[in-house]
Nucleic acid binder design. Structure first.
Length: 296
DNA sequence: CAGTATGACAACA
DNA sequence: TGTTGTCATACTG
């Protein structure tokens, strides 16, 4: 059975305005960052997209809560360095000491997490049933995967890339049993992408499936608050292996629950956005979108 | 063993 | 100042 047969793509519509906006927004961000030197005007970009400038402005603002110009401001190197916080590595330390996290309060979502036992990980997901579904999101089509213990995977597909996206995720747990199930996964999608539903009554349960080292890195990521960022070496220090920044990068890159585990808030020491599994443009989009949600 | 979403440093323009 | 290349490093599959 092919993926297209498993998934009823026709059942997916861009029901949220933000969901249908992303493709436009993505191209704007691409233009802005590709020729950041020439700084294309709103009008120039609108022409290239075949829209009117005012229409484009409206679309972008609805999506980000920020005008394109303000958005660009929010993802500059300069701003990124501010997100990184001042001296040394206080960010990860303080967020814990303030009682913001601990086992209950992690991330901006009310997240509780559990890790798979080493045995379960070694089995490559054997005996595990993973339900999945595709949903529109502010960052394009999102693939949600969940076990009965909680959210296990979140990925993004470019238009037409649904199958590749699914494969990318599925091969992480090759022995698992995958079941298409829009109904079971929909609540996760609804919750995760609506900031109004964050910090809610019920904690969002996530299941971290990975090696010991990876899980430790992902737990560190969960402690980064909204609107903040850390460097790969910060994380390395945090898990007690200050020289393992590069290995941290590799582990961050394998994060299966993107966005929820905020891997987009890991930056290079210079503040540069160094990489993102689902595309640098999307990482930029997430950081700018969050800047908009911050009240800016 | 090879690959990596790093980081530090040197050598440029 | 900003960009580019090189190299050491630690952990994964």
């Amino acid at each position: 059975m092919t993926l297209a047969q498993q998934i009823d793509l026709s059942a997916i519509s861009d029901v949220t305005p933000e969901g249908s906006d992303y493709e436009t927004v993505r191209r704007v961000i691409e233009m802005l960052t590709l020729d950041y030197q020439s700084q294309p005007s709103l009008e120039t970009m609108a022409v290239r997209l075949g829209q009117s400038p005012s229409q484009l402005q409206k679309t972008f603002t609805r999506w980000a809560g920020l005008s394109p110009k303000a958005f660009l401001q929010a993802v500059t190197l300069d701003h990124a360095k501010r997100l990184l916080g001042r001296e040394g590595m206080p960010l990860l330390e303080t967020s814990i000491e303030l009682g913001l996290s601990g086992p209950g309060r992690l991330h901006d979502l009310f997240v509780t997490h559990e890790a798979m036992s080493p045995g379960e990980w070694k089995a490559k997901g054997a005996g595990l049933t993973i339900r999945y579904g595709f949903f529109p999101s502010p960052f394009g089509l999102a693939l949600v995967m969940a076990t009965d213990r909680g959210l296990a995977g979140l990925a993004f597909a470019d238009p037409g890339g649904e199958a590749a996206c699914f494969d990318d995720m599925a091969e992480r747990w090759p022995a698992a049993n995958f079941v298409a199930d829009q109904a079971a996964t929909a609540p996760y999608a609804a919750r995760v992408f609506d900031p109004a539903k964050w910090c809610g009554d019920q904690p969002l349960k996530v299941v971290l499936i990975g090696t010991d080292f990876q899980v430790r890195v992902w737990e560190s990521l969960l402690e980064i608050p909204l609107g903040k960022a850390v460097t790969y070496s910060d994380i390395a220090a945090r898990i007690g292996q200050p020289t393992a920044s590069r290995a941290v990068g590799a582990a961050v890159g394998r994060n299966p629950i993107s966005f929820v585990v905020p891997c987009h808030r890991a930056l290079g020491k210079s503040g540069a956005l160094t990489g993102y599994h689902w595309g640098l443009t999307r990482k930029r989009a997430m950081l700018g979108w969050e800047a908009g949600k911050l009240g800016g």
